[in-house]
Amino acid sequence: MNDKLKEKAYEKILLVSAFVSVIIIILIGGFIFKEGLPLINKVGLFEFLLGKEWHPTDGVFGIFPMIVGTFAVTFGALILGVPLGVATAIFLAEFAPPRVSRIVRPAVELLAGIPSVVYGLFGMVIVNQILMTIERTYLANILRPEYQRGYSILSASIILAIMILPTVINISEDAIRSVPREFKEASLALGATEWQTIYKVLIPAASSGIIAAVVLGMGRALGETMAVIMVAGNTVAIPDSIFAPVRTLTGNIAIEMGYAAGDHVKALFATGIVLFIIIMALNTLATVVAKRGVGRS
């Protein structure tokens, strides 16, 4: 009898710990909305989301340039990072001899473990410098002077592309490896080359996993903060070139939180709300994609 009670108690404790994540998500959402929503109500949802001017100390709050900036650097990172990541994953899964993968795999892990501040410093000092030199030497006549300063969507995208590599590589590799061996053997037996087998059989079969990798990489790029503020230039303006400096939503919060007061703080929490909603939407998308993948196979 006593034992049974104990068992029940343990189960309840475990149930509670299982719900901790859910509780925290609700708390995070709750707190950010509580702190930020009053400002959105005051400014007006449309003015806040679509406003092009951000002068928080004068009470002007429009985050449209930051929304555009966030998506610009994220897509830039995906365009640069996904092909390299997926190619590396294929390389690791299909081509790399064990001795080589013994070097590449820990390298990928280490890449994942390097703090974003280190990437930021690297980008600020090295990548931006190289970009600025290229812009001023080869593109000087094409670009406006404001776009020849290194700080840009492009430099942020390059740094973010490096940062999402491990996510893209690991998940794509898992997806490619989980394609049943028979698929590959059948294709090879039919006389297809290795490469034909890879892009006609393996990649299509692993596509839902690869898409999941892209979505997760996108999440990481959207959410990255410290590295981006160090390289992107943080100018509040709608970018019209990949050489334009931009500010992201995460950057907006991190840059101004230290000194903000009153409505300004609330506006930064409101920026957090927008970010929270974007991430939740992305998560739902990822769940749907994953489910579809399961349904098909």
């Binding site: 994540s21 509780i23 998500i25 950010i32 997760l216 995460t250 929270f276 991430i279 998560n283 990822a286």
Partner: peptide, 12 residues
């Protein structure tokens, strides 16, 4: 809940 939590940006 767990997956959503994993996706939240650190600044949030």
């Amino acid at each position: 809940g767990t997956e959503a939590l994993a996706g939240i940006p650190s600044i949030v």
